[in-house]
Nucleic acid binder design. Structure first.
Length: 287
DNA sequence: GCGCCTTTGAAGGGT
DNA sequence: ACCCTTCAAAGGCGC
């Protein structure tokens, strides 16, 4: 495969490095990496079939690039807190800037496909012996019950005015979270007040969104940041309540290999709200 | 030592 | 068609 013809040499190099590094060192952070280096007993098997990581998506690429900046600006070091900031900043990026990262991500995926033909993301599922069980991913299904329905399921598309604000924004469903908490017998704990509210920019963003937010904001703050991560209490509500920030282009994100809308083709019409549902999130469909 | 937290996006299985 | 789950990065924190 002549990847070097298609991809810049440096890009290729860093891409390959990422996967090879992860195999020998195991970044110590990514849980997916841990089994790779910790289970010495499985070394043989893993030598046969090394762990190939997923290509980074646009946001991951953005995070990688901007993390150092945010860490430098803030006194925060916790990745969860940093990521919340980055998530907000991501939403406040212009579409051109976002498009840049979508394009990079598309290249990463292409390169990944060329380097590892036949690789499937599913290959990484349950990598290592222990399968991860995430708290947030359990609960709801097990608890069951109508009260736990998310806004979309509860009210339907034609009653979007009944949806909670986060759902309208494709954020975590407040009603869903509350129902979960109620079902569990506990309400979400209030956020711990952050020691250092990062940059003024972020604080302003928070103030803006706070001032302009209505009903759903209070529960949202507590519900969407169960980790008690500081300074970020309002980060859950996207930076741009007043003028909606550029949303993730439907045309650029999912399956964009087949997507007719390449980055260069983006127009102001082609940036509807994200159309993909996420766990605990709802989709805003513009009809 | 290991999993969680937190973010968005991609992918694929399940309904 | 839509929903759900998992994993990519990162590093501190709790058990």
């Amino acid at each position: 495969m002549n990847c070097s013809k298609v991809f810049p040499r440096q890009f290729l190099k860093s891409f390959i490095n990422r996967n090879s590094r992860s195999q020998e060192k195991g970044s110590s952070s990514s849980s997916a990496d841990k089994p790779a280096d910790s289970s010495a007993s499985n070394n043989k098997e893993q030598n046969k079939k090394p762990h190939i990581k997923k290509p980074l998506n646009a946001f991951m690429l953005y995070m990688k690039e901007m993390r150092a900046k945010v860490v430098a600006e803030c006194t925060l070091k916790e990745s969860a807190a940093i990521n919340q900031i980055l998530g907000r900043r991501w939403h406040s990026l212009s579409r051109e800037e976002q498009a840049k990262y979508y394009e990079k991500a598309r290249q990463e995926r292409q390169l990944h496909m060329q380097l590892y033909p036949g690789w499937s993301a599913r290959d990484n599922y349950g990598y290592g012996s222990k399968k991860k069980k995430r708290k947030k991913d359990r609960g709801p299904a097990e608890l069951g019950g109508n009260n736990l329905k998310k806004c979309r399921a509860r009210y339907g598309l034609d009653q979007q005015n009944q949806w909670c604000k986060p759902c309208r924004r494709k954020k975590k469903c407040v009603r869903y979270m509350e129902a979960m908490a109620a079902a569990a017998g506990t309400m979400p704990l209030p956020m711990v007040i952050p020691k250092s509210p990062c940059s003024e920019e972020d604080v302003k963003l928070e103030e803006l969104s706070d001032a302009s937010s209505d009903e759903a904001d209070t529960p949202l703050n507590s519900a969407s940041s169960p980790g008690g991560l500081s300074a970020l209490s309002s980060l859950a509500s996207p930076a741009s309540d007043p003028p909606p920030p550029p949303r993730n282009p439907v045309g650029t994100n999912p399956r964009d290999a087949n997507n007719p809308l390449s980055v260069g083709q983006l127009t102001s019409q082609s940036w509807p709200r994200a159309a993909q549902a996420r766990p605990g999130h709802e989709v805003i469909s513009v009809s």
